[in-house]
Amino acid sequence: MAAPNPPVIEFCDIARVYGTGAAEVRALDGISLKVEKGEFVAVMGPSGSGKSTAMNIMGCLDRPTAGRYLFNGIEVGTLTRDQRALLRRHYLGFIFQGYNLLARTTALQNVELPLIYKGLGRAEREAAALAALDKVGLADRAHHDPSELSGGQQQRVAIARALATGPHVVLADEPTGNLDTKRSVEIMELLQALNREDGLTIVMVTHEEDMADYARRLIWMVDGKVQSDRRTKGDA
């Protein structure tokens, strides 16, 4: 059974292997780490170091080949596809590099999407989605399509979508990868505020050290292993 206050994310010697025999690729090679509630963790590392693979496993989109993954103390490895979908629905939020908003669908409807699957009624859903949009400063853009919004605004809508369900963790995969420096800073300041003020747990993959400094902790990965795990300059 789960411990009284288990870490939100706990990797125990996790490996993820693609292919077999000579074509075998060990994307993750025995990783162990914990993310506690309220942390803001940046994950960095060169291409092919296993960052994305680790994020996919954290997000319950993928399963480890070996080792155990405990999410809130729940063993994810033994869950079915549909059970993992339920975990994502209720406890996880995703932010992608390419925003991944539905086209020809208003900001409000995009934010409502996860709430539909959560089974909320129309009025409740709209209220929650508007609150989330308000939190990212886009309440006045609720009825705009993504094509009518700038990149930074689209990413904020995506953040609102991730927040709307009140997740335990938000996983951000290079959230500023498509944005210029000014917008990137705005997005990072938003994430930082959400972490500091609301106690939101965030795990973020990034290529940019400047962005990683907004997090409190930095995990550096190389060749599917954790090379270093330390406090950032921004952790004050």
């Binding site: 549909d82 979908a85 991944n100 699957y117």
Partner: peptide, 16 residues
């Protein structure tokens, strides 16, 4: 396909 991926990421089950 991408829309389907987004729906699955936010918690849509295969049956849905």
């Amino acid at each position: 396909t991408r829309e389907i991926g987004i729906r699955m990421a936010v918690g849509a089950q295969a049956g849905q």
